[in-house]
């Protein structure tokens, strides 16, 4: 299958390992990976801030650039939700509405794609650590639910998964929310870090790097030994 990756700006610049891991995994499974380098952002930041015309400006090239893709796989539930769920709202009544619907139908979050489209759960990964999982809200509620990331982690050799309390509660990142309401955002993150730390895990894993950026920022500041890691990085570990 020809798979088109969408790599948003923060994975590109802060967490390239996530994208690289995705490429490795998909190629190892025998698929052809393409990456339209010109597409940097899905437009979620201006969209969430209420600046919809500006968001459309960013999103239009994405619609065009992905028009011919067979499937689009996204390593961040948040950008994925933007393209799968919110584009149709953003472009409702606009000339691109049909294109937005077409894109929505072929967008997948990475773990959902592996499990439900490719039908694989065992990638031969080895990761001898105790991990706990944080469900990124958009991956959880707009994209694929709880099952796929867990199904994948279950097959990783040496990995012990411990569920944290309220795994489904938001970590408090929320894009620009994190800087517009830093006190609330940090408080929410602290609650999340505390429940993750209570599991005694070595890593918090998630399928959304944006949540992890927030959590790692708090964990490092609090000086906790717990580390964050993206699901794709674990799955690519051998």
């Amino acid at each position: 299958m020809k798979i088109t990756l969408f790599i948003p700006c923060f994975i590109d610049t802060l967490y390239p390992r996530v994208g690289i891991s995705m490429v490795q995994i998909l190629e190892k499974l025998g698929h052809v990976v393409t990456f339209p380098e010109a597409l940097v952002c899905c437009g979620q930041p201006p969209f969430n801030s209420g600046y919809w015309p500006e968001a459309r400006q960013v999103a239009r090239p994405v619609l065009q650039g992905l028009a011919d893709a067979e499937v689009v796989v996204i390593g961040s539930g948040s950008c994925g939700a933007m393209m799968k769920v919110f584009y149709t709202e953003l472009f409702a009544g606009e000339p691109e509405e049909a294109a937005a619907r077409a894109l929505s139908a072929k967008c997948y979050e990475f773990s959902d794609f592996l499990v439900n489209q490719l039908g694989v759960t065992d990638l031969g990964a080895v990761f001898p650590h105790k991990v706990t999982i944080h469900d990124g809200c958009h991956g959880l509620r707009e994209m694929n639910g709880k099952a796929p990331p867990r199904a994948l982690l279950k097959q990783v050799r040496g990995l012990e998964l411990v569920e944290m309390a309220e795994a489904e509660t938001c970590c408090g990142f929320g894009g620009t929310f994190a800087t517009k309401f830093p006190a609330i955002s940090s408080a929410m993150g602290e609650v999340k870090c505390a429940s993750a730390a209570a599991t005694d895990a070595d890593f918090v894993v998630s399928n959304d790097s944006s949540c992890l950026m927030h959590l790692q920022g708090l964990l490092s500041r609090e000086g906790r030994p717990l580390k964050t890691i993206h699901l794709a990085e674990i799955l690519a570990s051998v």
């Binding site: 802060l14 967490y15 994208g19 790692q216």
Partner: peptide, 27 residues
């Protein structure tokens, strides 16, 4: 607004795009 309570992530020395430019698939 970010750094008061949180560490800022480091920009990676090589971005994904930079990686991709030199990437040749194992196919």
């Amino acid at each position: 607004a970010w750094t008061k309570t949180r560490e800022l992530p480091e920009l990676a020395p090589q971005s994904f795009r930079e990686f991709w430019k030199n990437h040749r698939p194992a196919l």
